[in-house]
């Protein structure tokens, strides 16, 4: 398996998924076809848990604005993490800007919904 790196655009975040066990999604998420856009991301994640050889995974979300479909995809993403939390040491960082209240609330929602996942909310000043 290989690293997956997707450049940031006006509507989509910068995505970096490294086989060494580091994932980051940074930017805005308004893809034209959200499920199509994130398909390789979910695929990569599944194969990481199937084939990956490292023991831990750290995930950073730094999503400023996102549409409803992206929110559904992020749920699916957390689902996959949740299913594999016994096999790997997973740590999620949900990063949000200090005056972006709605991003903070979205992060808190994920903490509520996935109480068994190790999710840290970090505030950028």
């Amino acid at each position: 398996m290989q690293d997956l790196v997707i450049e940031q655009t006006q509507y989509t975040p910068a995505i970096s998924m490294l086989t060494e066990g580091k994932i980051s999604l940074i930017g805005k998420s308004y893809p034209e076809n959200t499920f199509e856009f994130y398909k390789p991301v979910i695929q990569w994640l599944n194969s990481f848990f199937e084939e990956g050889s490292v023991d831990s995974l750290s995930v950073t979300f730094e999503i400023i604005y996102f549409n409803s479909s992206s929110s559904k995809v992020f749920f699916d993403f957390f689902d996959v993490l949740n299913l594999n939390k016994e096999d790997k040491n997973i740590h999620v960082i949900w990063q949000h800007d200090v005056d972006n209240e709605s991003a903070l609330e979205a992060g808190e929602d994920f903490v509520d919904d996935f109480p068994d996942l190790n999710i840290t909310i970090k505030t950028t000043d």
Binding site: Y65, N67, S71, E105
Partner: peptide
């Protein structure tokens, strides 16, 4: 998800 999105988008 829809409820949260609506709330979030209203904020935005």
């Amino acid at each position: 998800i829809m409820l949260r999105s609506d709330r979030r988008q209203k904020k935005e």
